[in-house]
Each structure stands twice: as C-alpha cells, then as structure tokens.
Design a protein around this nucleic acid. Sequence first.
DNA 1: TTTCACATTAGAAATATTCTAAGGTCCTCA
DNA 2: TGAGGACCTTAGAATATTTCTAATGTGAAA
Lengths: 141, 141
Amino acid sequence: MNAAAIRRCLEGSGLRCTPQRYAVMAFLAECNRHPTAAEIFDAVNRMDPRSSRATTYNNLRDLVQAGLVREVAVEGRAARFDAKGMRHHHFICDRCGNVEDVEWYDVPRPASGTLGKRILRECELIFRGLCTKCAPRHAWR
Amino acid sequence: MNAAAIRRCLEGSGLRCTPQRYAVMAFLAECNRHPTAAEIFDAVNRMDPRSSRATTYNNLRDLVQAGLVREVAVEGRAARFDAKGMRHHHFICDRCGNVEDVEWYDVPRPASGTLGKRILRECELIFRGLCTKCAPRHAWR
DNA sequence: TTTCACATTAGAAATATTCTAAGGTCCTCA
DNA sequence: TGAGGACCTTAGAATATTTCTAATGTGAAA
Ligand SMILES: [Mn+2]
Ligand SMILES: [Mn+2]
Ligand SMILES: [Zn+2]
Ligand SMILES: [Zn+2]
C-alpha cells in the first residue's frame, strides 16, 4: 500500500490524515507481524514526526472503529493489531502468544433463531495450539 | 454440579481441593455469566474462607491449565472466565463487552497443509455484534 | 513425627491502557 | 483575512489489571 492509498483510506473513513495517524497506518500496512501498541509506538517514534503514547492509542482506537485495523485480544498479554488486508483467520500460540495469519475460508453462520435479537457483525475463527517454533519444544517434555 | 463432583474434577486433574480453589470452581460452575477475576474474587470473599487476590488469580490460572475453566480475552477489558460445561461458542458485544453463550455447532477445520508444522488444539468461534440489550440503542442513532 | 511439595497471604510491583488539561492545526464562513 | 470551532496531539498522571515476593501454613506420604 503506497502513501496515496493510505491517505485515501484514512480520508475515506472520515479521519484526517495527520502525520501521526499516517505513521501508525503505514507501519501496520507494511508489517506482516501482529505488533502490540507498545511496538507500534516504538516503531512510529523511530521515524519523524514523533508521536505520544496517548496519540498512538487514540489513533489505534480510531482506526479500529473505522474498520481499517483489527485488534486481537490475547489472554494475559497486550492487545495486538493488524491492518485488515485480505480476509484471514488467526492462529494463536498457547505457549508464546504469537498471532499468525491463516488462509481464510468461509465459516458457517449460526442457525437463524439461535442469536435472537442480537445483531451479528462478524464471525471470527481463532485456532489455538503450538506454533512452528513452539511445537518441537513440546515434543521433548 | 454438586460438592462431590467439584472435588472429583479438581482431584482428577491433580489439583488439591483447597477451600479457596473449591470456592472459585464452585462459583464458576453455578454462574451462568462470564465473571472477571475481580468479580470472582469478590464472590468468593462473600463466603468463608476468604481468599487473597493472588490466590484467586493463581487458582484461575491452574484451573485454566487443567482445562476445567475457559478464559475469554475481550479487547480493552478484563479477562472473563467460565467453567467449561457443555461445548459452546461465544458472542461478544461490541458495545458493552458482555460475553454470552451460543449453542455449539461443528466448525470446519482448516484444510490439511495450511497449518504446516503447527499443532492444532482447538478452533474457537467468536461472534461479534450487539447484544440484546445494546441492539435497540443502536437503532436510535 | 518429620518432611516436602503444594498453597495461601498482604502488599508491592509491573504492565497495559486511559484520562487530563493545555495547546496546536486546519477548515469554513463571514 | 481572521474568528470560530472541530479535530488532533502532548506529557505525564491516573487507573486498571495482573503478577511477583517473601513469609507462612497445610496435609499426605514416608
Ligand atoms: Mn492478521
Ligand atoms: Mn461461556
Ligand atoms: Zn509459539
Ligand atoms: Zn451489549
């Protein structure tokens, strides 16, 4: 995603393209991992202009609300973020907490009626187990 | 679940049935909501004997490790817990963060090969949207 | 009985996130 | 041009959640 595309997707969501907000979005768009807010804060501050912690969190909140960024909660660990590129599922490692992308496939929705008056926005599928790095260590013990 | 059953399931998992641990498990087993650690701590301390915060967290950790309790991470909110009774999925409200049970149905696993050397333990399906209480407020605005 | 792994405790510490209050930027409309 | 106002950023304080520490207790096995 190039600079113009990032600017477009921010403004298309009604968000001003400030240097700080741009930097968060640009970092997430090029980042293939799932960084925490602290990692994003650090990365952004290696560039100019710098951004405060509050602004980093504010911008992450705004980007998530706008649907441009996804937040992944991991039990007992800081939240992780990714720019919503292609649809995909997530694999979360029981041992190291790493979040990895898994190729997307369609998930069957619940039978009509089971959700009652609730309004369904999305079905999220999360795989859990041991990642490639942690699986071998498991075999030893 | 009666007292004997709780004792059995703790000891069957190699955990001593201490009064504090029993109280956490008993509370979760009878609780149909998804309480936070703080709520569990409060509930347990309304009974005797009392339990410290550290012990409540330690016991929750042990129960999760033993597979008797499930922890649900909710973005931006404290973790929630439930005793794993019947298999079920979860609905998490975007607005109030409430976690609700949804009748279980089978989830298709990823095609063999997509997970590589990873070891898959479970597939978790999470529904997101607005709960029954929050859906109407949404219509107003 | 002694022993030892397992548990508990109060409070401190660490971690993660949000809030506050002050000021900056940039668009709009006279 | 410039006053007004919506939106944004900032440093650091405050809050919320979870884990750690170090001392002490408990109970089953030897
Ligand atoms: Mn991802
Ligand atoms: Mn549940
Ligand atoms: Zn791992
Ligand atoms: Zn709700």
